[in-house]
Design a protein around this nucleic acid. Structure first.
Length: 437
RNA sequence: GCGGCUGUAGCUCAGCUGGUAGAGCUCUCGGUUGUGGUCCGAGUGGUCGCGGGUUCAAACCCCGUCAGUCGCCCCA
């Protein structure tokens, strides 16, 4: 062994911005949350599917040029010069598009209405910020049907997502619900052409205020003042039944939204609110739209759970009309934001219930047998890795948040003992009938 | 992709108007014989983001570059 001073070249590890990872004590919480979401989704009979991380670029890019710049494409480091260009693969940037493709592809094998959930990572090449990553988990739940889909599903998916978030102990959340037909109906009635442009500005009303919205609509889009007033008045109305429909589209939107709200009456008061300023950009949404706020973290104003209804998302892939409605829980966003504001209590660093002390090499077989007995009885038991000083073994248990330290007899004929590190009590114990008290 | 701010130990940071690096926490070991969190002691750990320039001398000044971060666009 030479004592050379020359150091090994170390590549200094650093986090990759936008690609979050967690220490064990937070990862365990992340998994618990996912389990809870899954349990709630399944309690309503939604099944799980998983699609590949990649889709053909053509499938993904179908959504429009605006998202193009956010798409990561997959490429081998040394691509052959004769690789086909038209079969490029790209990482999916949401789960709705892959879902639509999936339904189109497996149409004949699925039972409709098809209700599924999907909890996977998605990738977007954006500038990362708090609550905005480049690789993140979404928990999508959608229902899709042939020809038409009953409106009560619009209420059901909202109720499911509320229940799922409520199960995670993340404080109060509020779903804000709107129906695009109401605003679009008005815009059509007053003959505003650029509905996409208008809705995009309206979407910012809470962030920049109604005066600023009015100014932009006037200065940038040349909308007449009286029309702006009409739009702003509508968008700030909280009392849906009081709205006067100016055409069929508006009436339809009002009816649908009222129905959805009525079907969510069983939820707590703060949980659901109508908000006509929610329009969700220029998406494929055609009716109900949702956003969700964390009421206990007012500093964070972005939505943590959004979605809506779409008329025929899969029409690109199959010659059928397949309307659907769905919501996506922004899992990583939720987790990151709550972690940032210290709303997440760290979990245990180890899943083990018990640390089995290894008194000496001679007692390894005994310790190992005892551990096996306890495992067979359902306990999670970690064997200490070396016959080191007992103090060291205790401090290891302490550091890993393992509550019980099991001490096998140091000498034959003596009793086993267990110490509870929380209560500091130590008692004799039999591995065949000991229980956590 | 565009604009503001920031890059010193694993983490949080100090380092005065340029004189070749420090603290706290973490981590490792020790404070004797079979018992953890506290306390005490010691130790490991830094091409001062990277490259160039000015200077006798640069963590500090200048230029460039990269990265991070906040805001915008957009969105979960």
């Amino acid at each position: 062994m030479s004592k050379d001073k020359q150091k090994k070249k170390i590549y200094k590890p650093k986090p990759i911005s936008g690609f979050p990872e967690w220490l064990p004590e937070y990862r365990v919480v992340e998994q618990q949350w996912m389990d809870k979401i899954r349990a709630v989704f399944e309690s309503y009979g939604y099944c799980s599917i998983e699609t590949p991380s990649v889709e053909e670029l053509e499938v993904i890019a179908a959504k429009g040029e605006d998202v193009d710049k956010e798409i990561y494409v997959l490429e081998r480091l040394q691509a052959d010069s004769n690789d086909k260009k038209d079969a490029r693969l790209a990482l999916h940037f949401d789960q709705t598009v892959p879902f639509a493709r999936y339904v189109g592809q497996h149409f004949n094998e699925l039972t409709f209405p098809f209700k599924r959930y999907q909890m996977q990572r998605v990738w977007r090449g954006e500038r990362p910020q708090l609550g905005r990553a480049r690789e993140f988990y979404q928990c999508d739940i959608d229902v899709i049907n042939v020809d038409s889909l009953p409106i009560h599903f619009d209420a059901e998916v909202a109720a499911i997502c509320y229940e799922a978030m409520d199960a995670m102990d993340i404080g109060r959340v509020q779903l804000r619900i709107s129906n695009r037909k109401i605003l679009m109906g008005l815009l059509a009635h007053i003959e505003i052409e650029d509905s996409v442009g208008v809705t995009r500005i309206i979407d910012k009303i809470e962030k920049i205020g109604s005066e600023e919205v009015a100014r932009i609509l006037k200065d940038d889009l040349n909308i007449p003042s009286d029309q702006i007033q009409e739009v702003l008045t509508l968008v700030q109305t909280k009392d849906i039944p009081s709205i006067k429909a100016l055409n069929d589209e508006m009436q339809e939107g009002i009816d649908e939204l009222s129905f959805v709200l009525n079907n969510l009456k069983h939820l707590p008061d703060h949980a659901i609110v109508a908000d006509l300023s929610i329009v969700r950009g220029l998406d494929y949404y055609t009716g109900t739209v949702y956003e969700t706020r964390l009421l206990d973290i007012p500093e964070f104003t972005s939505s943590v759970c959004s979605g809506g209804r779409y008329d025929d998302l899969a029409s690109n892939y199959i010659n059928k009309k397949l309307p659907g409605v769905g919501i996506s829980i922004g899992f990583t966003r939720l987790f990151e934001v709550l972690h940032h504001y210290n709303h997440i209590k760290a979990g245990k660093k180890s899943p083990a219930d018990i640390l089995m002390v290894l008194p000496s090499e001679k007692q390894r077989a005994l310790a190992s047998d005892t551990a096996r007995t306890l495992r067979n009885r359902g306990f999670k038991v970690e064997m200490y890795h070396a016959p080191q000083k007992i103090g060291k073994q205790f401090s290891y248990a302490e550091k890993k948040n393992i509550q019980y330290v099991w001490i096998p007899p140091f000498e034959e004929g003596n009793a086993h003992e267990v110490k509870n590190l929380d209560s500091k009590t130590q008692t004799e114990a039999d591995p065949n009938d000991w229980t956590i008290s």
